[in-house]
Amino acid sequence: MAQKAKTLRDLARMKRALAPGHRACAGCPFPVIVKLVMSATDYPLVVANATGCMEVTTTIFPYTAWPVNWIHNAFENAAATISGVEAAYKALKRKGKIPADKEIKFVAFGGDGGTYDIGLQALSGALERGHNFLYILYNNEGYMNTGIQRSSATPKYASTTTSPAGKVIPGKLQWRKEITDIIIAHNPAYAAQASPAFWSDLIRKVQKALEADGPSFINVISPCQPGWNYPPDLSIDLTKLAVETKYWPLYEYKNGGWKVNYKPRKPLPVIEFLKPQRRYKHILNRPELIEEIQQEVEKRWERLLKLEEAFPLKE
């Protein structure tokens, strides 16, 4: 049995953070997500990484920040790549070339570009085939590595370089698609949404995902300082505000059931989450657009509560 971290002390003892010296922007929170994922247990890990900020900034040759085995193949194929690694593991174990008691866990990291968009097919295929792996989506709501372009994860009215706020058009005109719902439609062994600010919830979800027998998926919000355009010390605060405003519900799915893990007693209005981000500055004086976003947040939240009520998660 693997050790599971519960406290921050436990996490520190695992000593499995991304090493310092990586080139992520100051304040970028994905290294925090990686630290929490890698330190949640002491299972030996093999990581596959889609092309994107995480891959680029952590492995500039000869300087890699990854303390565990790590493979990058291309942009759209992290799930297919980890499928291959996992298939090799199964085959080599079956043939006695890897000791039967040697347990390795497989994790893929992809951004929203590599997950919602260009990598969706490969991920769907890997989920359907039932490989034993955990896919972590670090979701910064845009193609940030190439310079902040819209993705299908970009929320409505956010300004990006390909959905710029102009004199006529107020940023992106479409709602973000719900990738976690799409993943759940594959009936994975485990799926969840998480936030780094809620680190204890996140590591618990990673532990459940790694213990699940089959594919698992966690969608983690990961603000992008230059892309969302806010002071870099606010990265973690934003991941808290996203949850407290119900913009980013913390929930999980298993065995056909839903559980909302955190229900803010006094939810904050969504403007509290939007305000610090200059990608929304063009709508901050347009209350009707803010209200539209608020209504959408409420709609999605209510839907989630109904799902939980109708199909409660049973362990």
Partner: peptide
């Protein structure tokens, strides 16, 4: 055979999975 057969959803994923498996030391 005792091969692990991965019936992928495209040739792109076929070669991608081959890369992953081969990097894992397997004969692919």
């Amino acid at each position: 055979v005792d091969t692990e057969f991965v019936p992928v959803e495209s040739e792109h994923s076929a070669m991608s999975a081959c890369v992953g498996a081969s990097a894992a030391g397997a004969r692919v």
